[in-house]
Design a protein around this nucleic acid. Sequence first.
DNA 1: CGCGGCCGTCAGAGTTCCGTCAAGGACGAC
DNA 2: GTCGTCCTTGACGGAACTCTGACGGCCGCG
Lengths: 227, 227
Amino acid sequence: MTRVLVIDDEPQIVRALVINLKARHYEVDAAHDGATALQLAAARHPDVVVLDLGLPDMDGVEVIRGLRGWTRVPILVLSARHSSDEKVEALDAGADDYVTKPFGMDELLARLRAAVRRSEPVPGGEDEVVVDTAEFSVDLAAKKVNRGGRDVRLTPTEWHLLEVLVRNTGRLVSQKQLLQEVWGPSYGTETNYLRVYMAQLRRKLEADPAHPRHFITEPGMGYRFEK
Amino acid sequence: MTRVLVIDDEPQIVRALVINLKARHYEVDAAHDGATALQLAAARHPDVVVLDLGLPDMDGVEVIRGLRGWTRVPILVLSARHSSDEKVEALDAGADDYVTKPFGMDELLARLRAAVRRSEPVPGGEDEVVVDTAEFSVDLAAKKVNRGGRDVRLTPTEWHLLEVLVRNTGRLVSQKQLLQEVWGPSYGTETNYLRVYMAQLRRKLEADPAHPRHFITEPGMGYRFEK
DNA sequence: CGCGGCCGTCAGAGTTCCGTCAAGGACGAC
DNA sequence: GTCGTCCTTGACGGAACTCTGACGGCCGCG
């Protein structure tokens, strides 16, 4: 869940933001002054910060600098001041966006989404999606299969088949479903393809291909992958 | 030097932007319609895009989608329309910021700086800037490749291809992804380019180009860089 | 016991895909 | 203009992959 830190000294604005954010399933922390804000940010590590520049205890730009000293969390500035200089100062201090009051809630939320989106890691990036078994491991993101310390080469079809099975670990996948996912919607009945390629997978991955422990046949129904 | 792509059909706005940007030592490309813009973006790989939504040939939001199909380059939208819906649509399509005309040049430039700044890699962050192998080393920041103590000369395309592969060390990168990242979104199928340039890279970097150890072919799927 | 359905195995044919080379064209430097 | 560099394009041999048919084993059933 995305965590938002809202910093504003006007209770009604904080309330409006909190209600709207929570309704959209954000997790929200709120601070009404700069000191509390910096503390909360350090303690809670929000994914995005909404900051009103007009705070009672310190200049909003100081809050930006305080945050930028240790984090690159997106900062969305709210301010009643329209002057160009103020905007430039805040942005150059490290803010990511600057919205002037009064603001539309839809727009603010859209800007918030944009800020969160671009700080996300590349999709299909680092997050390792690895499935381990006793004999081998499958890295779905890197498209790699490792067995006994060395990489196993799979052909596109073999890989595709393996992927479907692994994404349904423990579940029975019908022959028809496998054929259609791997070979296309019009290949619901060519079960001989399955036999051939399942044999390849077993030969490459099973310790004893004749007595598979991971690629289980369910006669007349389909196949199942088990860790 | 930071490269900016300006997309606007009003000559005077383009002129004003180009003059201001060049005075601040940006490198500037300009396009006056969406089709040209997408082409230029693919060819020149700007560090940031300034996009006017009102284009003669296509909807500005379509341009955003066209870019977002293959790149995360920051997009700063200019528009004469103040409506909240327009902003939300553009931002949710993938824009990073939305400025309404008439705009102050100072503010625009500050927002541009903010957009560029946050897309920069973490300075001294965890991402390795230098990747070493037994035979050569790649310095992603300095854009240099060293082999046996001397620098290897790479053409822009060779470098670009190498960069994509190295940034995905160990992971399989599909042919389509490589083509689109290096040559642009409309080059998803010209696999002969890949064959030619992969051969160049191997010739320049592999000890035995006929039996590559680092630039691995996965037939039918793509390529993989291994340390 | 014989039969049929289902599955695993094998090997060859056909097709697709890849590495390599070389020529042509665009572009900028001089 | 001339040169050099780089990108594009086509062609071809060989490698890798997919498809296909045939055969044998296992099991349940008549």
